[in-house]
């Protein structure tokens, strides 16, 4: 590494740019979803209120909770409480892992019990499953990547190699994943509730 030191704020700006770019990626997916739904008027609406929507609501609240613990992790590192920071990061990772676990349970249920797969479903509009698994799958990949990211961050904070801006940047990413879900949940789940 070169000897110079960069001014603060670089990583924050870089992460914001990534977030904006990735928001466009998810927006593209949701636009594709909308266009395909327009083109297939018989789009199925299979989700029952209980367990379907209830389960997804719980997942949403779990993800929101992990955002709150992330906020506290950033607060802690700002006060230079490294141990506390690692604890809150740990809680965030736990929340993210719980979200993925719940999500996978739901996937398994849909795949095996309801017979909704990426390529087919009982209503003969195969794109329903394609959109569902495509959108939620890409989001889940982001959550999983976030878990790795936060783990590296936690390790670095406990070793003392990472500073305030690094945790803040990680926080930006994690909240962004949360923001994306705030659009996936209503558009993919709530708009497909059983009439």
């Amino acid at each position: 590494m070169s000897a110079h030191r960069n001014p603060p704020g670089l990583k924050t700006l870089g992460m914001w740019l990534f977030v904006l770019s990735d928001m466009l990626t998810f927006s593209t997916l949701l636009v594709v979803y909308s266009a395909l739904r327009f083109a297939n008027p018989a789009w199925p609406r299979p989700f029952s209120l209980n367990p379907g929507i209830l389960f997804a609501t719980i997942m949403t609240i779990v993800l929101l909770a992990s955002s709150l613990t992330m906020v506290w992790a950033v607060d802690a590192i700002k006060r230079d409480q490294r141990k506390r920071t690692v604890q809150w990061l740990g809680a965030t990772i736990l929340g993210g892992a719980a979200f993925i676990a719940l999500h996978l349970m739901e996937w398994c249920h849909l795949l095996t019990v309801e017979n909704i797969t990426p390529a087919s479903n009982p209503w003969n509009v195969p794109l329903f499953g394609a959109v569902f698994f495509g959108v939620t799958g890409l989001h889940m990949a982001h959550v999983a990547a976030g878990l790795v990211y936060l783990s590296v961050l936690a390790a670095g904070v406990s070793r003392g190699t990472f500073c305030v801006e690094d945790v803040e940047t990680g926080g930006l990413y994690w909240h962004f994943v949360d923001v994306v879900w705030m659009f996936v949940f209503p558009l993919v789940y709530l708009m497909a509730v059983k009439p």
Binding site: V71, G171, H175, F176, V179, M182, P186, L187, L190
Partner: peptide, 19 residues
């Protein structure tokens, strides 16, 4: 309504959580 509420949620997260 959903889009409106979701935009509100995104704005809240960006404004407070993302500083």
């Amino acid at each position: 309504l959903l889009l409106l509420l979701s935009l509100a949620k995104a704005a809240l997260i960006a404004w407070y959580f993302m500083h």
